[in-house]
């Protein structure tokens, strides 16, 4: 009897908790949609409709405006959605791949091996992570213009090999979940170190790689200031840089086109995110985990 009551109250609590979870989650989900709705509903407005009310969903002639905004974007001589997409795609994809792969490698070097300069190297990475980037930009742009890194996509891609924050994450992750026993047994089986890293350690780190890859991709894709300064050639510009060109003069901003441009910029990102988010959602049953 007493047991039944207890069970009953547990069940009741369970339901209450569920309700709370749903209410809070749905509230946050709706909030999340806000900025996207804003982008969408302004992309089919005329500039003057945007100026009159950015948050309203209404437009007098949505289709006509959408067509006009699209024409505005594509007829701007500096704006080529195709070229911009290609450049953004190349920069974001390659820098993400380099970023996560080499960060894993570096983190593995720090975690798995005992070497003399290890602590020093680790401290260096931490220190680099803590350098405020604002002023170092002055030197970087100066250097880039001097030695001709301008208009090279690689100037935006290659630096991501050294991503201290991602190394830090990977190291923390490895410390928690890498068991040296697996590595040892692989060694006994005669596998080389590099192969062990690629075939055993990398798969082990998939959840970490997926999350950091998303962050890196988003960061690289949305990066605006450096590309604006380093990519001056119209054929090298990335999508966000091209959208920035729609701004024009203070008095001649084409807001409808700008929002459509922003929307076009964010859509591929959502696709990439949807693809990678699978790993966050499902989780991966891990084999050799430290217990």
């Amino acid at each position: 009897m007493a047991n039944e009551v207890k069970l009953h109250s547990i069940k009741k609590n369970e339901t209450a908790l569920k309700v709370v979870i749903y209410v809070v989650s749905i509230f946050f989900s709706i909030m999340t949609l806000f900025p996207f709705v804003m982008l969408i509903c302004n992309s089919y407005k005329s500039t003057y409709e945007v100026q009159a009310s950015t948050l309203s969903l209404y437009s007098k002639e949505p289709l006509k405006n959408l067509a006009f905004n699209w024409k505005q974007i594509t007829s701007k001589d500096a704006f080529h959605p195709g070229v911009g997409f290609r450049n953004s795609f190349i920069v974001a994809t390659l820098s993400t791949v380099l970023n996560v792969y080499f960060s894993c490698l570096t983190a593995y070097a720090i975690t798995a091996y005992e070497w003399k300069l290890r602590e020093g190297f680790n401290a260096m990475i931490m220190a680099v992570m803590m350098i405020p980037g604002t002023v170092t930009m002055i030197g970087f742009f100066q250097m880039a213009y001097k030695i001709g890194l301008v208009n090279k996509l690689s100037a935006l891609i290659l630096p991501s090999i050294a991503a201290p924050m991602v190394v830090f994450f990977m190291r923390q992750y490895l410390q928690a979940s890498l068991s040296m026993e697996i590595v040892q047994s692989a060694r006994i089986d005669g596998a080389g170190e590099f192969r062990i890293f690629n075939q055993i350690v990398i798969p082990l780190m998939k959840p970490a790689i997926a999350t950091q890859a998303i962050f890196a991709y988003v960061g690289s894709w949305n990066n605006l200031f450096s590309p604006m300064i380093l990519l001056t050639d119209k054929n090298k510009k990335t999508l966000p840089v091209m959208v920035s060109l729609l701004n024009g003069d203070i008095y001649k901003k084409e807001y409808g086109a700008i929002y459509l441009g922003l929307l076009i910029t964010v859509l591929p990102l959502i696709v990439v995110y949807a693809f990678l988010s699978k790993y966050i959602v499902e989780g991966v049953a891990l084999g050799g985990v430290k217990s």
Binding site: D77, G82, R86, G148, K152, L153, N235
Partner: peptide
């Protein structure tokens, strides 16, 4: 690429990544 022959190219992989500027030809 219109990069001028400034010559200094410290990044060897560059030519492999750089898109050529032909998509733009059909428009002004």
């Amino acid at each position: 690429p219109s990069n001028g022959g400034s010559g200094v190219d410290p990044v060897p992989t560059d030519s492999g990544v750089e898109p050529s500027d032909t998509t733009a030809t059909e428009k002004q």
